[in-house]
Amino acid sequence: MSQIPAKLQRILDDFSAITDRHERAEYLIEIADRFNSVRVPADISARPHPEENHVQMCESDAYVWAIPKEDGTHQFYFDVLNPQGLSAMALSVVLAETLSGEPNEAVAKVMPDIVFTLFGREVAMGKGQGLMGIVNMVQYAAKSKL
């Protein structure tokens, strides 16, 4: 397995083709609107969430859960405590929808710099680090199973 999951690659290809920042923002906002579908269920975690699931560098107070499935892959869930953390929500939806159930080898190859493909090169440094921290948590969960 040498590639990242195909579903993620397709989304990255979509975003790579976007040159207009307004179009990019509209697309991301539309994705963020689906955040409730990837929010961690209460039977897995209720607020206040454990610190071990907290993304340290994310200013939007994002949390990541990687729940093992019977086939050895993970179901990824997220929470974003900042109701205005739209970027963190959009990224969470992308990761949950494209990486859940995918082989750990492929998920482990997802690099944090996909953030710049999704959000554009002009994303602020601190913002970029926070978002990359979310990807790091997902990648770490997959790597730990290899």
Binding site: A25, L28, I29, A32, Q84, L86, E122, V123, G126, K127
Partner: peptide
């Protein structure tokens, strides 16, 4: 002026302009 660049396009105070810190 926001930390999250998606907030202004998702809705803002009527008549408000955006000043993006990075751009």
């Amino acid at each position: 002026s926001n930390e999250d660049p998606l907030l202004y396009p998702s809705g803002h105070i009527p008549g408000a302009v955006q000043v993006d810190w990075t751009r």
